[in-house]
C-alpha cells in the first residue's frame, strides 16, 4: 500500500488549481513551509498573502477577499485555524455564507511532538456547530486532491482538516469524492464501521482481522462531516447487527455524535473508538499517541467482538 503526505498533496493541488483559476488566493500565518502553501507562493506570489502570526486577521481578510470575488484558502494548524479564528469564521465568513476555504493542517494528534497546544481533537466539533459551514476530513492523499478541487468549486465556507504525517492510501483507485456522500470502501454484512481520516485505513485493517474470525464488516468512509446525506448513512446501517464509529477526534461533536444522532430510534447497538473528552500530549511519534488513545485496529477488533458477544 502506498503512502502519501496530505499536506504535500494539498500544496501541490493548490498550486495546480492556482494556474487554472486566477480567483484562487492563499492566506498564510507564518506556517507556509508546514502547510505547504509555499508551493503556491513560489508560483503566484501576487496571490499569496502572508499576514504574520495573526489568524483572526487572516480570517477577516479572507472574508474581504471573498467579497471581491476571490476564492481564498486560509491556512494554519487545525487548532489555530478553527479555534483561534472561531469568532471571525462565525461572524465575518459564515453568517454571510462567504466563499472562504479554511484548511486546518496538523489536525488530530498528528502534530505529535508539539503536544496539546498544537493538536486538534475538537476542530470538527467547533466547525460543525456553525450554520452554513461544510466540514471535510480526507481519508488519504488521493482524497485530499479531490477535495481541494471540490472546495474551490463549492460556493460557501468549507473547513478541511489534514493529517501532518504520511498516511496510507485507504481508498480504492476508482473512488470519487462527492461532497456529502458516505462511500462504502469494503463491504460486509455483520457490522458496519463509519470512519474518517486516518481511521479509515485502520478500520479496513480491523475488518481484515475480523474476516478471519468469520465476521463480515462493511467499512464506510464518512469524509464529509457536514452536510451529510443522513438518509444514505441510515441506509448503509440497515440490516447490520451493530455500528462502530471511529475517528481521530473527540467523542464530542464529531462523527460519533453525528452517527448517534442520525441512527437514533433505530435500535442499533453503537460503539465508538475515538478520543474520549481529553486533550492530547507530546510523544515521539503519531503512532505512539494513536496507540495511547486507543485509536488502533486492535481496539476496533476488541470492541467489535464485545458487541457481537452481547448479541449486537
Amino acid at each position: 500500500m502506498g503512502m502519501q503526505n496530505q499536506r504535500r498533496v494539498y500544496g501541490e493541488t493548490l498550486e495546480e488549481l492556482g494556474s487554472r483559476d486566477e480567483r484562487i488566493v492563499v492566506l498564510e500565518a507564518d506556517l507556509r513551509n508546514s502547510t505547504m502553501t509555499a508551493l503556491f507562493q513560489r508560483a503566484f506570489p501576487e496571490r499569496h498573502f502572508e499576514v504574520g502570526i495573526a489568524e483572526a486577521n487572516m480570517a477577516g481578510i479572507a472574508a474581504g477577499l471573498a467579497l471581491t470575488g476571490k476564492i481564498p484558502f486560509v491556512n494554519s494548524f487545525a487548532t489555530f485555524a478553527a479555534g483561534r479564528a472561531y469568532d471571525q469564521i462565525r461572524q465575518a465568513i459564515c453568517i454571510g455564507n462567504l466563499n472562504v476555504n479554511i484548511v486546518g493542517s496538523s489536525a488530530g494528534l498528528s502534530d505529535f511532538g508539539d503536544g496539546a497546544t498544537h493538536q486538534a481533537v475538537e476542530d470538527i466539533a467547533i466547525m460543525r456547530a456553525i450554520p452554513n459551514m461544510t466540514v471535510l476530513a480526507p481519508a488519504d492523499g488521493n482524497e485530499v486532491r479531490e477535495m481541494v478541487g471540490a472546495m474551490a468549486a463549492h460556493d460557501g465556507p468549507v473547513y478541511m482538516r489534514l493529517n501532518r504525517n504520511d498516511v496510507p492510501d485507504a481508498l480504492p483507485a476508482e473512488n470519487t469524492f462527492r461532497m456529502g456522500t458516505p462511500v462504502v470502501i469494503r463491504d460486509g454484512k455483520d457490522l458496519v464501521v463509519f470512519a474518517h481520516g486516518i481511521m479509515v485505513s485502520r478500520a479496513v485493517q480491523a475488518a481484515n482481522i475480523l474476516a478471519k474470525e468469520g465476521v463480515s464488516v462493511r467499512v464506510v468512509n464518512v469524509s464529509t462531516l457536514k452536510p451529510l446525506d443522513e438518509a444514505a448513512l441510515l441506509d448503509l446501517a440497515q440490516g447490520f447487527q451493530g455500528v462502530l464509529v471511529t475517528e481521530e477526534h473527540s467523542i464530542v461533536g464529531g462523527l460519533t455524535a453525528l452517527a448517534a444522532y442520525v441512527l437514533r430510534g433505530q435500535g442499533l447497538p453503537l460503539e465508538s473508538v475515538a478520543i474520549s473528552d481529553v486533550f492530547g500530549q507530546s510523544a515521539h511519534s503519531h503512532e505512539e499517541l494513536l496507540e495511547h488513545y486507543g485509536l488502533t485496529a486492535a481496539r476496533m477488533v476488541e470492541t467489535a467482538r464485545a458487541m457481537l458477544r452481547r448479541g449486537a
Binding site: 488566493v25 481578510i61 471581491t68 470575488g69 469568532d87
Partner: peptide, 25 residues
C-alpha cells in the same frame, strides 16, 4: 450592506481583504 459586522474588531480586517482584492484586480 457589504459584510456582516458587529462582533467588534473585525471590520478593518474585512476592509483590508477588500482593498487587497481591488489591488489584485
Amino acid at each position: 450592506v457589504e459584510a456582516n459586522t458587529g462582533s467588534l474588531g473585525q471590520g478593518l480586517s474585512i476592509a483590508c481583504g477588500m482593498a487587497l482584492g481591488a489591488r489584485v484586480d
